[in-house]
Amino acid sequence: MLSFMLKRIAQLIPVFIGATLLVYFLVFATPGNPIEALSGGKPMSDATRAALEAQYNLDKPFWVQYGLYLKNLLTFDLGTSFSGQEVSAMLGRAFPVTARLAILALLIEGIFGIIFGVIAGMRKGKWFDSTILIASLIVIAVPTFVLGFVLQFVVGVKLDLVKPTVSGSATWGELFLPALVLGLVSLAYVVRLTRTSVIENKSADFVRTATAKGLSRRRVITVHILRNSLIPVVTFLGADLGGLMGGAIVTEGIFNVPGVGHLLYQAIQKGETPTVVAVVGVLVIVFVVANLVVDMLYALLDPRIRYA
């Protein structure tokens, strides 16, 4: 297990370096003046220009520039925004909010996704299954931002059940609706994945053998069908944690949640490229770590992987 972990970590290092390099390369090494890019095309003073050049070490060779960027990223020295705020401080405030939102979304999609998926899979071809299948297709087809607006409008404004937007403190209760919107598409995927997996395992040879041993139906379902079906689902959920952090950009914009996505959204709107690059860099770290966690989970759940 330990050697497996070390192997996976060793494999993730080049991914992390590659992804940050990609981001950095896209922003600083493509044709056009990088300072121009950093300023978002706005006119700026010579002082700002010089400060930016110094901050991003643009006077130095590319590899040195990138190395320093990586160092800054890892030491959480993310520079300042145009308005003079520390990006790291802004992230420090926003990150817990988004983390809360993502965890809530993960819980919603995990719990409901697995329950619906298992029921649909066990009753393949019945009305519940068909309804769930069609509903999941619709959820995948409707863009998240449309779903967000509709739910905000119906539940928040018309029915007045919850506040349509989130306050600065972003409590768990306030975050429920945005989390639902954020997790809904993934929920649909979880349902479909669970269903397929249950159907596959239901007809597996080892399930028939378990039945032949004299186990009760209940035990066959929980110990043999469910346990095995959950392996791909849990893996998906883990990988999705990273995806949710990225998806938050839309949801947080709609519900005015003061999270990382909102920060990014605002930075894009204002053309604050330095903030964008910094935030994306941090998100890449989150993805890479999430991937590592998934690998560990996978190995934990499936003994065949552990010893491979």
């Binding site: 991914v15 992804a19 896209l26 922003v27 493509t30 044709p31 121009e36 890019a37 995806g243 890449v284």
Partner: peptide, 24 residues
């Protein structure tokens, strides 16, 4: 495989936002 992993670390929307920000 490694190249794919790198691109996977950057989800579609996030990556697209960065690219669309490029001056070009």
């Amino acid at each position: 495989a490694r190249l794919g992993d790198i691109f996977f670390a950057l989800p579609l929307i996030l990556g697209a936002i960065i690219v669309m920000q490029l001056p070009a």
